[in-house]
Amino acid sequence: MRLTALLMTVLSSGALAEDFVRLPGQPAFASILRYAESDGKVSIAPFQLMTRPVTNAQFLAFVVKHPEWRRGAAPAIFAEPRYLEHWSGPLLLGDSAEPEQPVTRVSWFAARAYCEASNARLPTWSEWEYAAAADATRADARQDLAWRDRILRWYAKPSNAAIARVGQGVPDLHGVHDLHGLIWEWVDDYAAMLVSADNRNQADPDLLKFCGAGALDTNDRENYAVLMRIAMLSALEGHDTTGNLGFRCARDSSEDSP
């Protein structure tokens, strides 16, 4: 009964609406990652991206509907002990987690489950990188030094300050908010970016390079902000959570919004 009441409250608040926006994609996007087998160009198909990171209120509505993802119920293999630990209770945000702040302390498994429940998925790194290259007027502002400085300033801020609410400030030209300056975000292939084979010394190294060479080079060493993202994501395991790591969902563009 109490649950039903709670569910009605969360469901009736307009804040739960998930806004997806279509991004046109790009046939040859210059990724900061240059893998050995490519020239650093990746093809980004059109896709939809949530205009804001998932909020505490939205994630609360998710765990109300999916008890297996509540704090204390989600098994350790999917979410470490710090999962949602800043919430007052498994179904209570409390003072340290405002409804409109982005949800953080969520594992990759939990983030994926949330997106799946929304008939969506996590964006890939390439999709995220492509989306995050935009500013208010340009689809790719990465060569603008002033833009880079503005982004880097966020990384220099101490991380103990309270996280702002989602969707403040000016969206980029696609209508997307908060790709920089608010939180770190999970991507579906977080584990894939720096894959390299550690076992080349086990047999003929020339042979193994074909199957095991995971070398990547960076096209753009000056773009520290994005490089930091890659380094951070690559250091994580799927059950990890951190106080400023959240997520947003994506969809293939052919799928209609429900």
Partner: peptide, 16 residues
């Protein structure tokens, strides 16, 4: 804890 990445040519890089 297996990390992998699909390559454009259909092969995969992966830890083994």
């Amino acid at each position: 804890g297996v990390r992998y990445r699909a390559l454009a040519d259909g092969e995969f890089n992966h830890t083994s």
